[in-house]
Design a protein around this nucleic acid. Sequence first.
DNA 1: TATGAGATCCGCT
DNA 2: GCGGATCTCATAA
Length: 195
Amino acid sequence: MADLAQLLDGTPLEVAPRLLGCVLRHGEVAVRLTEVEAYAGPDDPGSHAYRGQTRRNAVMFGPRGRLYCYFTYGMHVCANVVVGPEGDPGAVLVRAGEVVEGLELARSRRPGASDRDLARGPARLCRALGIGLEHDGVDLARGAVRIEPGQPVATVSTGPRVGLRGAPDRPWRFWVTDDPTVSVYRPAAPLRRRG
DNA sequence: TATGAGATCCGCT
DNA sequence: GCGGATCTCATAA
């Protein structure tokens, strides 16, 4: 899809706000993206690609338009859209969205959650869409998981990224202003192990 | 409503 | 062996 190639052409910082309003689809369930974060390559201490290519982040170094999935915290999966030319790692983390199709299925995957919470948060979004590690590296133009251009959003807000340990305050987080499905996380959750 | 802490496993050093 | 781009429940105010 030529439109997709255009959409994903540019640096993560340029592409991230463009993805807002686009639709991420897996089977019956589709989510309209309302919140994303940009991650650069070796330049960016917050990026998985910061310390070079590894087995896990190999997809980030590949061609754009792929889905980069990673497993974290022992139980959660998060999804990124790979952007930038091959060999120049970059990605946009999909942080939150609004379920616009397949509501029933998404609900059944997240029992007890309100509709607006279904995909509010990167790990929740993946669960609602049924995305797992098996989708790492799929082609977003033709694969099981796809992204489709959507309607442009009214207003975009920016701010610092969330949950990163070693990253300075870079306003690389983008969200749809005033959208109720945007995740708002508590500022300080000191990561502590048992005890 | 706000804050604290546990859960749980993969990849890197 | 350690740390993590998180989520959820439990408890306090």
